[in-house]
Amino acid sequence: RLIESLSQMLSMGFSDEGGWLTRLLQTKNYDIGAALDTIQ
């Protein structure tokens, strides 16, 4: 599930440099909407 969510976020133009996006998705239970809300 992480790989699916991460690949979708990467395709939106986000980077996972340093693993920050992986950690964010894990804390949000791989919910892309919740991750995007946090980023904004």
Rank of each mutant, 00 (worst) to 15 (best):
R23W: 05
L36V: 08
D37P: 02
T22P: 01
Q8D: 08
K28N: 14
L24E: 02
Q40S: 12
R23Y: 05
I3V: 13
Q8E: 12
L25H: 00
L21A: 00
T27R: 12
E17S: 09
A34C: 10
G13S: 03
Q26N: 08
S11Q: 14
S15H: 13
D31Q: 03
G19P: 01
T22Q: 05
T38K: 08
N29S: 07
E17Y: 10
T27E: 15
Q8N: 10
D16Q: 04
L10M: 11
T38S: 14
I32P: 05
I3F: 13
A35F: 09
M9Q: 01
N29H: 10
L36E: 01
T22V: 07
E4Y: 07
L10K: 11
L36G: 03
L2Y: 09
I32W: 09
S5H: 04
G33I: 14
T38L: 12
Y30T: 05
L6R: 02
S11I: 12
A34V: 08
S11L: 12
T38D: 12
S11K: 13
R23G: 07
S15E: 10
D16R: 01
S15F: 09
W20T: 02
I39H: 02
L2E: 08
I3A: 14
G33Q: 15
L25G: 02
G33T: 13
M9K: 01
F14V: 03
K28F: 14
E4N: 10
A35D: 03
Q26K: 12
L10N: 07
T38R: 06
A34F: 07
S11H: 12
L36W: 07
G33R: 09
G19T: 02
E4M: 09
D16F: 02
S7I: 12
Q8I: 15
L36M: 10
L2V: 07
G33E: 15
G13D: 02
G13T: 02
R23M: 10
S15N: 14
I3M: 13
G19E: 07
L36S: 01
T27Y: 11
I39V: 06
M9C: 11
S5G: 08
S5K: 08
S7H: 14
T22M: 04
E17V: 11
E17T: 12
S7A: 15
A35H: 03
S11F: 06
A35W: 08
T38N: 08
G18K: 06
T27K: 13
A34W: 06
W20Y: 08
R1F: 09
G19Q: 05
G18S: 09
I3H: 13
E4R: 10
M12D: 05
E4I: 11
G19W: 04
K28M: 15
